[in-house]
């Protein structure tokens, strides 16, 4: 099976979340997956532009999607934000004729882009193409005894009708992943609640309160550590300074540890 994918890192992964990027590439390589970074990709915009009359904001995503199509590959991203935006825009290109026509008129691709590319989150790739069983076999340094909670946040799950990532109210992909790397996944109810997102710029107190509730629930449910796939969630969780704070890591870092990829190789 050819495990070559187009890869959309996203801007945060090039700067503040280099760990997420580097661990993703290294773990992918270790699992026999080739991630080919798209040439000259541009920022997806961070939030999906909801306005059905705004096409300009969606063009960066369309360009990335079309690039993957031209290479005949699925498009993989590991950042929750990018995943959300790319997949929502792709849905527009597939199902909303007005947006599709306008975006294509503007972009002037060789042939019109009609949502052909399949957008995958790295976790989906691990689950469906690599297989959690393979990871279980290759995890030579399993995280045995680690009680880890998955923090999904919003952008990975909602709106579920479009993202089709997992059950939006009772997700389990990350738990299955954690189980594969040998850890003990702990389900807690607040794992799909919002961390406050971009409001932390203006109202850090407010986001702190939300994050506090999440940590409290995670801790009382027995988590010793949280993992996430979203740099913004990671930032908000990290900034929390209340009593229930738990260590937070990216999913790919956990995977790297299990595969024995040397920690610290990534540039901090």
């Amino acid at each position: 099976m050819d495990l070559t994918y187009s890869y959309f890192p996203g801007c945060t992964l090039k700067t503040k979340a280099k760990d997420l990027d580097i661990y993703t590439r290294e773990t992918a390589a270790a699992l026999g997956v080739t991630l080919v970074e798209i040439d000259n990709w541009q920022c997806c915009g961070g939030v999906y532009p909801l306005g059905s009359d705004e096409v300009g904001n969606k063009l960066a995503s369309v360009r990335a999607l079309n690039d993957a199509k031209e290479h005949g590959r699925d498009l993989v991203t590991v950042c929750s934000g990018c995943f959300h935006v790319l997949k929502c825009v792709n849905d527009d290109m597939k199902n909303v004729p007005d947006i599709r026509d306008r975006a294509n008129r503007y972009s002037q691709f060789d042939e019109p882009y009609q949502g052909e590319t399949k957008v995958l989150h790295y976790l989906e790739l691990l689950r469906d193409a690599v297989g959690f069983d393979t990871i279980r076999k290759k995890a030579e340094h399993p995280l045995t005894g680690h009680r880890i909670g998955a923090y999904y946040g919003c952008l990975l799950l909602r709106p579920s009708g479009i993202l089709e990532f997992d059950d939006p109210e009772d997700p389990s992909v990350i738990e299955d992943f954690l189980e594969a790397v040998g850890a003990t996944p702990v389900k807690y109810q607040m794992r799909n609640e919002c961390c406050g997102g971009y409001r932390s710029l203006e109202e850090p107190e407010f986001t702190n309160r939300l994050v506090g509730k999440i940590f409290a629930d995670a801790k009382t449910s027995g988590c010793e550590e949280l993992v996430t796939a979203c740099p913004l969630c990671f930032y908000n969780l990290q900034k929390y300074n209340g009593p229930d704070k738990l260590p937070v890591r990216y999913i790919s870092e956990v995977l790297a540890q299990a595969l024995g990829i040397e920690a610290g190789k990534g540039v901090r």
Binding site: D167, E169, D170, K187
Partner: peptide, 10 residues
């Protein structure tokens, strides 16, 4: 089961 927000599964 799909009403996870009510913790029926949990």
């Amino acid at each position: 089961k799909p009403f996870g927000e009510y913790a029926y599964n949990l």
